[in-house]
Design a binder for these strands. Sequence first.
DNA 1: GTCGATGTTATCAA
DNA 2: TTTGATAACATCGA
Length: 274
Amino acid sequence: MPELPEVENIIRQLQKEITGYQISSVDIRLPKIIRNSRKTFLQALLKASINDVRRRGKLLIFELSSGYCLLIHLKISGQLFLVNKAEPADKHTHIVIGFKGRKAQLRYRDVRQFGYMKVVAVKALGKILNDELGKDYLEVSYDEFKEAISGRKKNIKSFLLDQKIFAGLGNIYACEALYQAGIHPKSNTAGLKARKIKRLFFAIEDILREAIRLGGSSVDDYYMPDKSTGSYQEVHKVYKRENEPCPICKTPISRKKTASRSTYFCPRCQKIAS
DNA sequence: GTCGATGTTATCAA
DNA sequence: TTTGATAACATCGA
């Protein structure tokens, strides 16, 4: 589900709401979500306080007072809700974390069950992040972006989606950024002229910041921990808009598979770079 | 009932 | 190096 802007909105709420809280209970209703042994996971969490909540790309990072970090990846359908413990939880709620002296509890809900939680020692975190994730898209400079593109011969959309190069973009924002930059999704990085690379970089910055401001894109079932929704989906120019007119030239938006993902684009405004 | 699609990513074969 | 297919799973709509 969530890409960088959605995860950013989630962590902003959690940071405000649960920083400083002490974990008093952990209910593992679906063990496969946890990528540690039950024992390790509980030892890291129980009685620990939440020192900080942050993220890198789409990965949420809770820093705990136990010397461990809790990593959460929501994948496609993961959700985090902060709700009163008296409210009933449905069958898709897999992990429930309770806090000392608090009525609110943190619930992990995930219909498709692809997401995960795992704890790692704080000392090991840096290495794990650097091995598995590139720099967050909000921290990438134009020079770094240009250099990463120039050094590769790769389909541009796969490039944008590759979390090891830079982290945070998913299918929605990759489509929107390519549209705004006027680049065909089947273009190769090697064929992009400097001007297009620049346009793409600033399109990404622009779109991410505006999407964060609007609370992210609520397509299907994205919610923030307080169950409010984002509104950036109303601003989407191409994503999920097959056959609707391009806002610039009125040509119907196409949908094709690229990198085995549905890709929406304007066949007239987005030409293949060669 | 069946088929295809869904915001992600790890893995494997070519 | 890069790609494409597949799998993990549940649900929805045609």
